[in-house]
Design a binder for these strands. Sequence first.
DNA 1: ATGCCCGTGAAGTATTGCTTCACGCTCACA
DNA 2: TGTGAGCGTGAAGCAATACTTCACGGGCAT
Lengths: 303, 303
Amino acid sequence: MLDVRRLALLAAVVDTGSMTAAAEQLGYTASAVSQQLRRLEVEAGQPLLHRQARGVRPTEAGALLAGHARHILRRLNAAEADLAELAGLRRGTIALGVFPTVASALLPQVVSRFRRQYPDLRLDVRSTRFDELVELLENGTVGIALLWDYAWNRVDVPDISLTPLLDDPTVLVVAADHRLARKRFTTMSELAGEEWIVRAHDHPVAEVLERSCRAAGFTPKIAFQANDYQEAQAMVSVGLGVALAPRTAVRNPNPDVRVLALGTDVPARRILLAHRQDRLRAPAELAMHQLLVDVAREYQTKP
Amino acid sequence: MLDVRRLALLAAVVDTGSMTAAAEQLGYTASAVSQQLRRLEVEAGQPLLHRQARGVRPTEAGALLAGHARHILRRLNAAEADLAELAGLRRGTIALGVFPTVASALLPQVVSRFRRQYPDLRLDVRSTRFDELVELLENGTVGIALLWDYAWNRVDVPDISLTPLLDDPTVLVVAADHRLARKRFTTMSELAGEEWIVRAHDHPVAEVLERSCRAAGFTPKIAFQANDYQEAQAMVSVGLGVALAPRTAVRNPNPDVRVLALGTDVPARRILLAHRQDRLRAPAELAMHQLLVDVAREYQTKP
DNA sequence: ATGCCCGTGAAGTATTGCTTCACGCTCACA
DNA sequence: TGTGAGCGTGAAGCAATACTTCACGGGCAT
């Protein structure tokens, strides 16, 4: 394969009409240019330049090669320009994986700010379950995923780097006409007699309830197993029971329910930013990373 | 500037979907490919490949670069193909410099055979004076020139390589009704009383006459100075005198003159092939060189 | 559990691309 | 007719680097 750097040299020499001028232009010594062109001629199997008293002139083969060289150099520049566009966030795609509750609470803010800040970047969001998120992350389908965990079961995936974004405290959801509905705060020990709505399929919030009640000295009576927090709120609103939920999950609550804070003794969900720990990360990925950190910080301070 | 060899590697890897396969295809070890791609990623400032359990997959930037790489490689192949065409004499130009008398005698044969043998090559012939031929040769306008000289004044130009092609003996031209017209051969000593037609402007054939006559013991009487051999023959044909000429110059003689051989004591013109002694010569030039040698040899044996 | 395939890393080696220094040549100007 | 500037070239030496070998770790399939 012909050496492209030598071809570039040839093109410069043909353009300037002189090895010395080309050398100067490209930051080499004249000797280096002379030697490299000599080698190119050997590679080509024929002379490429007519050496004259004043400078040089391309032979037929030289002119031909110089023409090809110019095309190749243009392409190379285009490739570098493309990389610069990616690096300069004027181009590129970032795929983000999220889970449903964060999708409804945090994502609108994230998307709108991302659109505003990086109008030229494409943003793909996929919302799915925890384990599939990890899979998408591992095979590179998404560059960043938002994950969550609780203190007793910290997420730990090899080669995945985690950044805690925010603590999502557990809150109590009661019907608007519940005896505690007027309060803004309560504790688990006040709730020993309640019936409980939980999420079905061994959802982690069931374990939160389990642990919190045990700590408060009672065992919860389960009245209903809901498929999502929307359904849980509906059950709560008609007085079937009360429920625990991460605060982000009930950010826009059903009008017939009230949300009460609980003490810090009730375990809080942690929301994390996850990405594969490659030493190199795509610029768009870094941009999204920073934006998520920022949005989370703001969300944490003024929920 | 991005390294094109690394880009080629990237393209191969993206095509095959595996570093090992690409390495095998290109004759490298897998380790080399891995290292080079790592470097390319650093150059690019972003990851180009997603490493997966089975092989690799390009990132956005990787796919982009691989696309550019494919274009560049196509161009490189085209450049090499062009060189091969030049080398394979399926393309190219050869410029040949000649002087008038050889042009009329030897050239028709040369041109027709060249056309037949290398139908894809362009042939440029320039006919001019000796000193301009050397100049054209030196500045590369022609790759090969035909020159001539006499024994007492051998051509010797620095950096010009010479190959004697043929000896062009001096002949005597007489009118068809001249006393010697019936003979095929004579000597200078038979010609002491003749009047002579010579070429004007100190043409070398005048010196041939001078030296030959002196050797034969007489001084020639000059009757006319002609501008070319055509004119000289015309003067000879009407009996104004006799003339000396290189045999090639009177290859198709005027019908009213006769051509007689002279002894080897009359100096012969030598015809030479001249080219700049570059270590590398264009393939078309080499082809023409060989063809001239062949044609000259045949011409010499059966004139 | 075992072997195979794939990518990766460290170390060593050979190539090679470039610089420095010196030379020869040609042209222009004194 | 020198004489210096500009240009290309060559030998020698140095430093970068592209490759190989050898060894390792992880995932997938038998």
